[in-house]
Design a protein around this nucleic acid. Sequence first.
DNA 1: TGGAATGTTGGAAC
DNA 2: CGTTCCAACATTCC
Length: 249
Amino acid sequence: MPEGPSIVILREQAAAFAGHTITHAEGTSTGVVMAELAGQPVLNVCTFGKQFLMRLGDRALRVHLLMFGTYRINETKDAKARLSLFFDDDSALHFYTCSVKTISDDLDAEYDWRGDVMADAWSPALALKKLRARPDLLVCDALLDQDIFAGVGNIIKNEVLFRIRLHPLSAVGDVPAAKLRELVAQARAYSFDFLTWKKAGVLKKNWLAHTKKICPRCDIPFERGHLGKTRRRSFFCGRCQKQYPAPAA
DNA sequence: TGGAATGTTGGAAC
DNA sequence: CGTTCCAACATTCC
């Protein structure tokens, strides 16, 4: 479910709740006081990276779907909801298997929107600055770092690195400047392709690297491994994805 | 059917 | 005290 673009879809679907008032809240989450939510208006909904945010009358709710989280609108799943919100027009929003937290309603103080690859405020220059400050960071870890690329997940990581022909074990400080700019640009560009494909139900069909066995460019087997400090799955072509610095022979 | 996966966190360990 | 590491959590699919 949950890389940044999927959360954007959630936000678009939940936009209909803005302007409505919560009449009742229930669920197993310990991150909110259910009784305090009744009567609160939904002022607006937004996202930061993989987080879904709802600004209410006197607080905001942060929902993170983690790896397995799901949600339903105007219907329920056969499972206990972490948080169910019922609204004054009899609509409802249910979250399952997720982390729910109550946070300050001053979202501009909580988040630097320039760090969200899906945001209008996304700043490639700021991302580059953060990257240059960490030359030893491997690019496979850099893309997953939510302080640099909020919203990017493991699928986007693999697809971006394949797209720009960059080996996942390359060190940020050794990647040529132009290639690093490409990395930043494609972190956003691929995320929007992801969004388009996810909406059309053709996301998997468009994967070129993630979970793939053969490189579509070289027609040779992909390498795979749990790389970097994050130890997340990497799928990459040892021939067309260049490594910086070149590995010792 | 056990293992692994679109992820983060909190606390232990150093 | 700061940084790093790893177990824990949870659902679904193969």
